[in-house]
């Protein structure tokens, strides 16, 4: 079919150059592909957070009532955020840790803007469970930080992974101190 559309290469009589019809077919499929991608994008992007969800993405927390050694849990973007008012001993132990012992090496001062307040996303980096250690009497694991009961990950007093399957330290959310007593998360 359509032999008249295929040009012979004058330099090499056996090789057939792609004809005009091939060009049209390829161009048609390319346009159809582009069109399908353009249609697919809004249908996929609508799965992303909507404008009202993004607008509610930060919270302000009063931390003046947290006694030394105590922790509170607040909800941010649907997830628990741990705020611990650390004791001097806990801060010292976090600073004294040898970085070579860590799976995900990070110094404590990089994780806490003010050393006495540690702010963490309370979601185990293994598979998303909430670690224990917030309430008095709960298991805090071998390093006196947090312990995830799902698969046994131990976090230290800086929320760094020390033992167990979790690959990385507990995440530090973006936050800033609006005053000495109010922290804004998000």
């Amino acid at each position: 079919m359509a032999n008249s559309d295929t040009n012979k290469n004058p330099a090499n009589g056996d090789v057939q150059e792609p004809g005009r019809r091939d060009f049209i077919v390829v161009a048609t499929y390319a346009m159809a592909g582009l069109g399908a991608a353009a249609v697919a994008w809004p249908l996929i992007d609508q799965l992303n957070p909507a404008a009202d969800t993004l607008a509610l993405a930060n919270i302000e927390v009063d931390i003046s009532k947290i006694a030394v050694g105590q922790s509170i849990t607040v909800k941010w973007r649907g997830k628990p955020v741990f705020i611990r008012h650390r004791t001097a001993d806990e801060i010292a132990r976090a600073n004294d840790t040898n970085l070579d012992d860590l799976r995900d090496p990070e110094i404590d001062t990089a994780r806490a803007e003010k050393p006495e307040y540690l702010v963490l996303v309370g979601v185990c980096t293994h598979l998303g469970c909430v670690p224990l250690g917030q309430k008095t009497g709960e298991v805090r694991g071998d390093y006196d930080g947090w312990f995830c009961p799902c698969h046994g990950s131990h976090y230290d007093t800086s929320g760094r992974i020390r033992k167990g399957p979790a690959p990385t330290n507990l995440e530090v959310p973006p936050y800033s101190f609006l005053s000495d007593s109010v922290v804004r998360i998000g």
Partner: peptide, 13 residues
Amino acid sequence: ERIMRDVNHGWMI
């Protein structure tokens, strides 16, 4: 109305 205003491309869909 949220679909029309807030959901990504919701108005168009």
